[in-house]
Design a protein around this nucleic acid. Structure first.
Lengths: 166, 166
DNA sequence: CAGTCTTGCGCAATAATATTTCAACAAAGC
DNA sequence: GCTTTGTTGAAATATTATTGCGCAAGACTG
C-alpha cells in the first residue's frame, strides 16, 4: 500500500463523493478523468485506508418530525479520564444526542441534540442528562434556524494549501 | 403524490440509507422486504419530496490534514433580520465554516469550523471573523476529541413514538 | 545503461445492478 | 358491485460494477 499520500485524482474522488455519495463509479471516473476500473480500485483503497468512513443519506430531520435541535454545553465535576469516558459512553447510549465533542476551556462537552418536540427534549434534559452522575452544569441553546450545514471538509482549502507548498 | 405520510417501509428505507447511503437498491429492497422496482420508486419519491436531501461520503478530516476543529460562539451588535442574514451570508462564503446555526439566548450563532492547523484558524479568526461587520463578541472552543458523531436522526425514537401514538 | 521491478492504467469480458414496461391486485369511493 | 387510484412484482433491457490481463512509464539494480 503506497496509499500514504493522496494524489490529485484521489483528492478529486474524495471531493466528488463528499458532494454526491451515490454517484455511479462510471460518472465518478469520467469526472476525475480516468477509466472506471482504476477509479473503483482507488475508491476501495480510500475506504480501506479510512479516508472514507462511510456513506450516509442526508435525511431532512424536520420532514421526519424532528422539529427541535439543541446545542447543550455540559460541565462535569470531575475531569478525570475515567469520568470523562463514562460521560461519553452515556452520550453514545442516548439516541437524542447526535454529536458529543470534548472541548477545552470551561465547558467540558458540547452536545448536538435533536428531538420531535420541546417536551421530549425537556424530559430528556431533566430525566437523563441533569440526573446523570458527575454532571455539574448544563446550558442549552435552541437552534432557531440553520444558515449553513455543509458536510465534511473544504477541499478548496486543501488544494490551495497544497499548491502553495509545492 | 400520496407522499405526505410515510409508511413503515419508507421509514425503513430512510433509516437504511442514513446508515449506508451506498447500499445497492437490490440490497435495500431485500432489507425492507419488497422487490427492487417499487423500492427504487420509493427512494426516488423520497428524494423528490425532500425527505432525502442528498448523499455524502463521510471523509475523515484528520486523515486529510484538517487537524483542528473549533466551535465558535458569535454575538452580534444588531439582531435586525437584515443583519442576521448578512452574517449568515458571510458564513456561507467562508469555507472553514462548515455549519452555522442561529441560536436563542445571549449567543446569536454557533459555528462549527475546521482548519488544517491552529495558525490557519487563527488567521481566519482575526482576519475574517473578528473584522466582519456587526460582530460584537466571539468565543472559541477547540475540540479535544469526538466522542460521538452520528449523522441525521434517531429512527428508533421515531418508531417508538409512532407505536405509542398508534 | 540495459534489465528488471513496481505501479497504475485501460481494454475487454462477465457478473450484478438499475430501470423500464406491463399485467395483476388490493383498498377506497361511489 | 364496480370503477378509480395506487402499488406491487415478474420479465426484459440498459447501465453499472467487477475481474482478469496485457501494456507502458518511472524507479531501483547490477
Amino acid at each position: 500500500m503506497a496509499g500514504h499520500r493522496l494524489d490529485p485524482i484521489d483528492r478529486k474522488i474524495l471531493a466528488e463523493l463528499q458532494a454526491d455519495g451515490r454517484m455511479t463509479n462510471v460518472e465518478l471516473a469520467r469526472r476525475v478523468g480516468i477509466s472506471a476500473p482504476p477509479c473503483l480500485r482507488r475508491v476501495r483503497v480510500l475506504e480501506e485506508q479510512g479516508y472514507i468512513r462511510g456513506y450516509h443519506a442526508d435525511v431532512d430531520s424536520r420532514s421526519l418530525g424532528f422539529e427541535v435541535q439543541v446545542f447543550v454545553m455540559v460541565g462535569l465535576q470531575s475531569q478525570a479520564e475515567v469520568d470523562l469516558s463514562a460521560f461519553e459512553e452515556r452520550c453514545r447510549a442516548w439516541p437524542l444526542v447526535r454529536e458529543c465533542h470534548m472541548l477545552n476551556g470551561e465547558v467540558d462537552f458540547i452536545l448536538k441534540c435533536v428531538a420531535p418536540d420541546l417536551s421530549t427534549f425537556q424530559s430528556f434534559l431533566t430525566g437523563d442528562l441533569l440526573t446523570a452522575p458527575n454532571v455539574a452544569s448544563v446550558k442549552t441553546s435552541l437552534v432557531i434556524r440553520n444558515a449553513k450545514d455543509d458536510p465534511g471538509v473544504p477541499f478548496e482549502v486543501l488544494e490551495e494549501r497544497l499548491s502553495r507548498s509545492a
